[in-house]
Design a protein around this nucleic acid. Sequence first.
DNA 1: TGTCTCAGTGAACAGCGTTAACTGTTAACG
DNA 2: CGTTAACAGTTAACGCTGTTCACTGAGACA
Lengths: 239, 239
Amino acid sequence: MDEGATRRDRQRAATLADIKAVARRLLVSGGVGAVGLRAVARELGLTPPALYRYFPSHEALVTALIADLYDELTGALMELQAADTDADLGARLFLLTNGLRDWALAHPSEFALLFGTAIPNPEAEDHADTPGHQAAMRFGAVFKDLVAQIWHWKPFPYPADEDLGPVLLAQLQQETEEFQGMPAGAIYLALSYWVRLYGLICMEVFGQLHWVLPDAGAYFEAQLREIGEELGLDCPLPE
Amino acid sequence: MDEGATRRDRQRAATLADIKAVARRLLVSGGVGAVGLRAVARELGLTPPALYRYFPSHEALVTALIADLYDELTGALMELQAADTDADLGARLFLLTNGLRDWALAHPSEFALLFGTAIPNPEAEDHADTPGHQAAMRFGAVFKDLVAQIWHWKPFPYPADEDLGPVLLAQLQQETEEFQGMPAGAIYLALSYWVRLYGLICMEVFGQLHWVLPDAGAYFEAQLREIGEELGLDCPLPE
DNA sequence: TGTCTCAGTGAACAGCGTTAACTGTTAACG
DNA sequence: CGTTAACAGTTAACGCTGTTCACTGAGACA
């Protein structure tokens, strides 16, 4: 087993996994601020400079952690929708959105790292092919694919091109390929639903909602039902 | 002038204002991470321990900055809606929401500090009367009052109690006083509109939107128009 | 005038990310 | 097989951070 990999390669991979595991544990227990080179090294019984054989900087470690977390989240969602096969697409939408919320609530620190404050630097355009970005795209594709599947399965009513305005229309039409041929109005709706889900989950996880809604679960369910109705789905109530 | 205040009190107030001004400048130019005790002291020509006469800790400084920023944002919005008097309430809603978005885009670092990742500690219940929290409540009251005014001016259609489900209904009814007597269904709608605006602005400021919408302005306007229609407002298109 | 309060200083501590020079083990090549 | 090069890891150090303590000097008040 592990042919082609020398002994040292294997131990290197193991140490690398250990580092990321410890970083993950620190993230969970103390937030992003707790993930430090020295802290990781301390728990591994290593000296801080040793970690520079695995990551060129502290930021690189965190970035790798982000990429891993994106993949973990994506994997959890794919596993979820693979679990109950032959579910109709409406049920699958509920499954995935609820799954995302559950993951976010169960892993607030990780969610914060992935979806929280990340001010973009104006120059940008350079980090388009970083592994973290690619992992984020893979995550986004899960929902993008689902909504496209729903669309091709049972097209839902959508605003006409004239109602969108020329500027918005042009931008949305540029995404029609990414959304497997959906018209601009349908993409507009999909985007608005995603924004609602994102805002909802963010506010709940970050505690900006529970001063008005102590338990946001019921509210989330109601919003999901509303979205399902607008999409013309059967709204299968779990519970 | 400044009677009752001794010379020392006045200079203390001035220094305190200087500290916060420098902290603000550092925040703008370099994000939250750039706001450090030593950095502030350095730019003020002071030694780091001197700042401990004004703030008990670094965190206290940042907290005070947050409170100030909330008040500044609230003030900017109130000023905005005081500027064009006798505007009808529909126009005022557009004015305020656009004002919030403009402020967020013009001050991304400040917006991130106020509305970005702030994981709540589980025990909680203790920071309910911190100045930052109170300032946040004052900010929230701006929109809460506006939506209540709109409601009492021209009640909009809202979901019936039976459609909300018992759990959600109970939580919403507990807020009926905060919302000046609005029924649960109307509060539900107001909340959902707020979540949409919050999610939209967050995603735009944090750059999670411009990989699909390079210019989210048109999208924001469309969403606003949609909300206005659902509220039965005249949708006065600015521009 | 004398005392007391308090803004501010200098020195120091612990912790952080990071670099440089060095040591020993392991893989690779003639 | 023996030599050499690559590499994981260490020690020591630099500059940075928030924070504490003992101390100084000047304004406030009796």
